[in-house]
Write a protein that binds this DNA or RNA. Sequence first.
DNA 1: CGGTCCATGTAAGATGTTACATGATTGG
DNA 2: CCAATCATGTAACATCTTACATGGACCG
Lengths: 203, 203
Amino acid sequence: MTSTLGYALLGLLARAPATGYDLSVRMRRPIGYFWSATHSQIYPELARLEAAGLLRHTVVDGAGPRPTKRYAITDEGCRELRDWAVSPPEPSAERSTTMLRVYSQWLADPAAAIRMVEQVHSMHRSRRAEYAALEAEAAHPDPGGDRSAFASYATLRAGIESENGALRWCEWLLDELRGDGTGSGDLPATPDAAGGTYPGRAD
Amino acid sequence: MTSTLGYALLGLLARAPATGYDLSVRMRRPIGYFWSATHSQIYPELARLEAAGLLRHTVVDGAGPRPTKRYAITDEGCRELRDWAVSPPEPSAERSTTMLRVYSQWLADPAAAIRMVEQVHSMHRSRRAEYAALEAEAAHPDPGGDRSAFASYATLRAGIESENGALRWCEWLLDELRGDGTGSGDLPATPDAAGGTYPGRAD
DNA sequence: CGGTCCATGTAAGATGTTACATGATTGG
DNA sequence: CCAATCATGTAACATCTTACATGGACCG
């Protein structure tokens, strides 16, 4: 019944009440580092959630031509969100246009392919730097303490992990494409792990 | 003009001609390990690509009630795919319902949260095993040799990387949630890296 | 006086999911 | 005989993106 976007909004409102505008600003960049939406999705969804009794709004002073609404989650909303949060996760289909491009780069000039992968690499570097800065701010919350702060931190760690993995992959691929490959087939060690740890291997 | 799905189909057809059915079977599981689609998307898209001159079909013998069509990519299709493959990648919005769930798990019973993360963990383990088996089959193609085989291999490596990162994250989170945390804040070394290497850290 | 921020909404279009529909062949 | 596989399509629905629309306040 409730959409994924709905749960994203409930997740934010469970932490603090907010206006639709507040929510749309926060969701321009991914929330929990793994979801995003625009205001044109958010406003209708808030109305639907309220009709379902999961939210309530009060009109407050604001700058817009229409009344400014501050939304708060209801007890029913909390319950529904809580149940969804621990319900069995569906096997999510990963999607990446970048990977699709790489899949067909064998058709193109090798130099052009390398340039494209370099761009991907630098995008991941700056994204990781962003996340690393956020991590430095919040330090490492105790899972037994403020649980909502720890949950935010856990999704941030996942973002950093995922950027580290992407960076390692880019560096491996660039080595291969440039012909610097040592022939071992292993991924290279990365000398510049700024922020976010590169964890050790098993052996 | 051409959709992402269109490029996914062109990417497969650039390797070998195929029927819509073939394509739909291959795309039930992600192609290049990072895209998927169902037959109801694929058939109309094939018609559109053909109308745009990027594909051509011949009718062949087959079992269906309608004529079975074998599609092949045209030179124009190859050119368009090639250009797209090395064009600047857009910053992709990552989406994960699992992460959204984790973001709100602080509302729920800790034991239920742990059970849910354990399920995520085991899903990633089996996915990685699947990928590792595929990797063992293909070994490590030379980037200077069959370039299309190497491109497939590169996307498979990305899939393995991403599974390794997800597994490491699950294991860290489970330690934290169970209260086994050493307090170092670092991710733990993982003792059971089956298939797919866990690469070394920088220092 | 022009641009940005606040603040909310609608509408049109692209894309993705789920269900409906047909019908022959093969294997248990 | 029932189910799965081969093989192609349409229709309804949900979701996401992009553009249109309004209007006050503040800053340069």
